[in-house]
Design a protein around this nucleic acid. Structure first.
Lengths: 79, 79
DNA sequence: CCACATTTGTCCGTATGTATC
DNA sequence: AGATACATACGGACAAATGTG
């Protein structure tokens, strides 16, 4: 059984939280700095998580604002 | 019009090559070092491309061997 | 079996830019 | 104007898998 890398485990965890409704569409994720502390990893690793989750359309990233759980409702007309 | 980042443009280009049949399922991509030269970026950027394309299930990565275009036929019993 | 080179993999820390508040 | 937060990109250290001799 392969040991999953950090960026994989973290993005899986976030995906799980979304599936379980712990994170809902439109919710804002903690800041990068916060996620670094929570998982004890560097900003670069969190960035990998974001690139992956963005490709999977789980999150939307907004420079200067934050990272949000994808909301199909506000998908087309982004604020 | 937003200027797309390098890792985005490169992964889009590879996706295009796959769609157009220039790259076919099972094909091996150039090495990271090679892709660095071709696009004049660092290895880190190419890795970002791979993380994205892997999430999109466009490629399969095999440590020590290479990176291949996803082939549904050989998906389960990898060579 | 062992040694070695090649290749990919993970993770880190940092510099700089840009959008938002 | 200043603080905060995300975005992009780089380069390096070290690990792990593969293939070859």
């Amino acid at each position: 059984m392969p040991v999953l890398p950090d960026y994989f485990k973290i993005s899986n965890k976030i995906q799980e939280d979304v599936k379980r409704g712990k994170l809902k569409p439109g919710d804002k994720l903690p800041s990068i700095a916060e996620l670094c502390k929570q998982h004890d990893v560097s900003p670069s690793t969190i960035r990998l998580v974001f690139v992956r989750l963005e490709a999977l359309e789980v999150i939307d990233r907004h420079q200067g604002k934050g990272v949000y759980v994808t909301d199909p409702a506000t998908w087309m007309r982004k604020p």
